[in-house]
Every structure is written in C-alpha cells, then in structure tokens.
C-alpha cells in the first residue's frame, strides 16, 4: 500500500475517534445539571468561533469584503429570509465586491 494511503487512513482514525467517543459517553453517563447547561451553550460558542475572524479571510488580501458579506448575511437573517437565500445573497454581495 502506498505511503499516502496509510497516512490517509491514520488521519481518518484520529478524526473518527474524537467524533465517536461522545456517542458512547452519553450511553453510560448521566451528566449533572451544570454540564447539561455547558453542553447546551456550546453551539453558540462554536458558531461564534467558526464565524470570526474566519469570515475576514474569504478574500485574504481584502478582509473588508468578508466583513461586508457577513453584514449582508446578518441583515438578511434578521428578516427571517430562508437560509439558502441568505447564503446566496451573501455570495452575490461578495461576487459584486470582488
């Protein structure tokens, strides 16, 4: 087997293990209330970290383009526009700014 494939399989292994362990943890463990609170707010913390500052790197040499695209997405989502339309609207904004 070529070297690259062995590396890919090891990459798969170290990616899969952290993903699947929680499935087994929640089978066995009941969490105290504060842990449930913590797990409940993780999505919001993760979304924050996933959005910023990454959004500035959409066009790496022009961070303001990502910023404007992000603001367009915020405005569109405030008006409860469908998520696909938000994605397309922000992409269109970036398209015209490039």
């Amino acid at each position: 087997m070529p070297r690259a494939f062995i590396i890919i399989l090891c990459m798969a292994l170290v990616t899969m293990i952290p993903r699947m362990i929680p499935a087994f943890i929640v089978e066995r463990v009941r969490f105290p209330e504060w842990v449930n609170h913590w797990l409940h707010v993780i999505p919001y913390a993760a979304l924050g970290a996933l959005i910023f500052p990454g959004v500035l790197s959409v066009v790496p040499e022009k961070p303001w383009i990502g910023l404007v695209g992000g603001i367009v997405a915020i405005i569109l989502s405030i008006f409860r526009i469908h998520i696909v339309a938000v994605v397309l609207g922000a992409s269109l904004a970036v398209f015209f700014l490039i």
Binding site: Y44, L47, G48, L50, I51, G54, V55, V58, V59, G66, G69, G70, V72, A73, I74, L76, S77, I83, V86, V87, G89, A90, S91, A93, V94
Partner: peptide, 12 residues
C-alpha cells in the same frame, strides 16, 4: 467562499 460563514450567521 462566504457561503459557509453566511450559513453559520443565518443559524446564529
């Protein structure tokens, strides 16, 4: 390239 960021924003 902004698509996934826009999606995260639309979810938040």
């Amino acid at each position: 390239g902004i698509a996934l960021y826009a999606m995260f924003i639309a979810l938040l």
